[in-house]
Structures are given as structure tokens and as C-alpha cells.
């Protein structure tokens, strides 16, 4: 069983954190991961920065630009993560856009992930059909779980397709928006969370986009298995640095 699947089988509401590798400082990656684990975070998404992050709002755009300016590269990230499995044991997911992965070579990239102990990937602009046709076998060979997104506009038929292609969890985008833009959840989101939960999919649901405090975390996880915080965490890092991590996590749950 993959570490992600194992974590999902624990009967709890999972807290997942996204951060951009190389931000605020180039060498912060390992320290952030250790602090997140120490403070009880269940899963971490490590963002591989990209010059043109289409699905991201200003906060993650800026953190990506800063990370690239700091000198972050795919090679360097793998180098930083070389001994990570001696230091943290929670599931780790790499999240990024497809182009840097394509340039690295998909097989080479997956091989490196397996080598350092990455458990899964989220590549929002790698579509389901392309993945299944060209890359699923490679992901499988290296024991990597690919995580797909759904949104309030995704049809039930497509959700079923995504469910059957998924082996970890389904990343439920909370509302029609880029990252970091929602301000609280209303009836629309609650109905959507409930509607999808009632579909009784084989994969657990984890909600992302727009979760920034204890209230939105609770709303998001009422009908689902967990929630992911990204922009709010990065905003905190930009204001308080790594010293703020412990307090931030405690305010969420």
C-alpha cells in the first residue's frame, strides 16, 4: 500500500498543506517538511515552481516567481529531497505543471520521485485522456499515484471516469476559481460537497482552493476526507517565515 492510501485509510479528517519549493528561501524545503510533520499535518504537496502557473492566483504566482528567482530547478528539488525519507514519513506529493516534467522526461521524473520517496503527483494540466494513453504505465511502474481534479462544473459522467482512473484521492476544487481567491464557503459549496459525497465514489475526496482557516477547513471536511491549504499557508510564510508554521497549523485544527 502506498503511503497516501495508508494515510487515507486512517479514519480522520486529513489536513494537507501545499507550499512552493524554494520559497521563501531556496533552502527551506526540508525544514518546512519537517515542521509540517511535527505539527501534525497529514499530507504535503510540494509545489514545483513554473513560470506560467495558469490555475493559480496571485499568491502562488508570486511564490513561484520568487522560487525561480531564488534558483529553484527540478534537479535541485530532487537533490534537496535526496534524504527526505530519513527525516519525514508522511505522504509527499509533488504538484506542478506538466511542461517542466516533460522537459525533465516523464520517465526520468517518475524514476527520481520513486528514488527520493515521493508518493504521488498532481499535474493539473495533464489531462485524463493523455495520462491514460501515454503515462499511466510509467506512473504505475514507479508506484506513483496520480491525482486528478474535479470542479463544480465537472459532469457526473466525467467524475465517474476520473474516479475509475484514480487510486488515491480525488482533488475537489471547491469553486470555480483559481487558487487563493475564495472568501468563505456558502450554500453553493456545501451543496456541491454533499452532492459529490453522495455519489459514493471509490476514492476519498479531499477539498482544495479557498480553505484558509478553521471554519473553512471544517466546512470543507464535513462531507469529505480532508482539505488542502495552499495560498493561505504561503501568505503566512511570506509574513512570518518558518517560525509561524506551528501557530498556523494549530489555528486550523
Amino acid at each position: 500500500m502506498n503511503r497516501i492510501q495508508q494515510k487515507l485509510s486512517e479514519n480522520k479528517k486529513l489536513l494537507s498543506i501545499y507550499f512552493t519549493a524554494g520559497y521563501p528561501k531556496l533552502g527551506d524545503t526540508v525544514e518546512i517538511l519537517q515542521q509540517l510533520e511535527k505539527n501534525g499535518v497529514d499530507i504535503v504537496e510540494i509545489g514545483l515552481p513554473f513560470s506560467d502557473p495558469l490555475a493559480d492566483g496571485p499568491t502562488i504566482q508570486e511564490s513561484s516567481q520568487t522560487a525561480l528567482k531564488n534558483g529553484m530547478t527540478t534537479d535541485l528539488l530532487f537533490e534537496q529531497l535526496k534524504d527526505i525519507r530519513k527525516k519525514v514519513s508522511i505522504p509527499l506529493i509533488l504538484m506542478g505543471y506538466f511542461n517542466p516534467v516533460l522537459q525533465f522526461g516523464v520517465e526520468n521524473f517518475c524514476g527520481k520521485c520513486a528514488e527520493v520517496g515521493i508518493d504521488g503527483l498532481i499535474l493539473p494540466d495533464l489531462p485524463l485522456a493523455e495520462y491514460e494513453e501515454n503515462y499511466a504505465a510509467i506512473f504505475k511502474k514507479y508506484g506513483l499515484i496520480n491525482i486528478f481534479l474535479i470542479t463544480p462544473q465537472t459532469s457526473e459522467e466525467r467524475i465517474q471516469q476520473i474516479d475509475s482512473a484514480s487510486e488515491g484521492f480525488i482533488y475537489m476544487v471547491s469553486s470555480a476559481s483559481v487558487t487563493g481567491s475564495a472568501t468563505g464557503f456558502g450554500n453553493e459549496q456545501n451543496d456541491y460537497f454533499q452532492r459529490i459525497a453522495l455519489m459514493k465514489l471509490k476514492n476519498p475526496l479531499v477539498v482544495g482552493f479557498g480553505i484558509n482557516n478553521a471554519e473553512t477547513f471544517q466546512q470543507a471536511t464535513k462531507h469529505t476526507s480532508g482539505a488542502i491549504i495552499g495560498s493561505a499557508f504561503i501568505k503566512m510564510l511570506s509574513e512570518k517565515g518558518l517560525d509561524g508554521i506551528s501557530t498556523f497549523i494549530k489555528t486550523i485544527r
Binding site: 506560467d52 530547478t73 534537479d75 506538466f98 517542466p100 516533460l102 522537459q103
Partner: peptide, 22 residues
Amino acid sequence: GKVGIIHGSKTLLMQTADGQIT
């Protein structure tokens, strides 16, 4: 350019060795 993804399309594009669009 080298083969890559820009604005939703696989095509030739100018980019760094690391896949950042220039």
C-alpha cells in the same frame, strides 16, 4: 524552441532547459 506545453497546447516553444517559458 523545443517541444513543450504552452497555453494548453503541445508545440514548439522557447524555454529554459528546466522547462520555464522564456
